[in-house]
Amino acid sequence: MIKVRIPTPLRPLTRGQGEVETKGGSVAEMIDHLEGMHPGLKARLCDEKGELRRFVNVYVNEEDIRFLKGKDTVLKDGDEVSIVPAIAGG
């Protein structure tokens, strides 16, 4: 099992859950799997080409996937994924 932390703005899509569980595979597969359970999530995270949007980071454990293998980063049992909005303010 992989644990995925969902940031507050996306929790309306996960019925309020701050943490969801998913299967292993690559990050791209994990996002597809999440989309199957929580429709609408993928479009918030990825653009039409499936690339991660420029205002969101995905961490596996404490490492940004942009510095691992991006969407092809392979998740293993027990990994913790964090979806983290970029720093923002007004």
């Binding site: 969101v56 980071n57 940004d64 510095f67 720093i87 923002a88 007004g90």
Partner: peptide, 16 residues
């Protein structure tokens, strides 16, 4: 004019 959101990639590069 009323908000900012950092480019996540540039933010990650800076932290790296």
């Amino acid at each position: 004019e009323i908000a900012f959101v950092m480019d996540a990639h540039e933010q990650a590069l800076a932290l790296k």
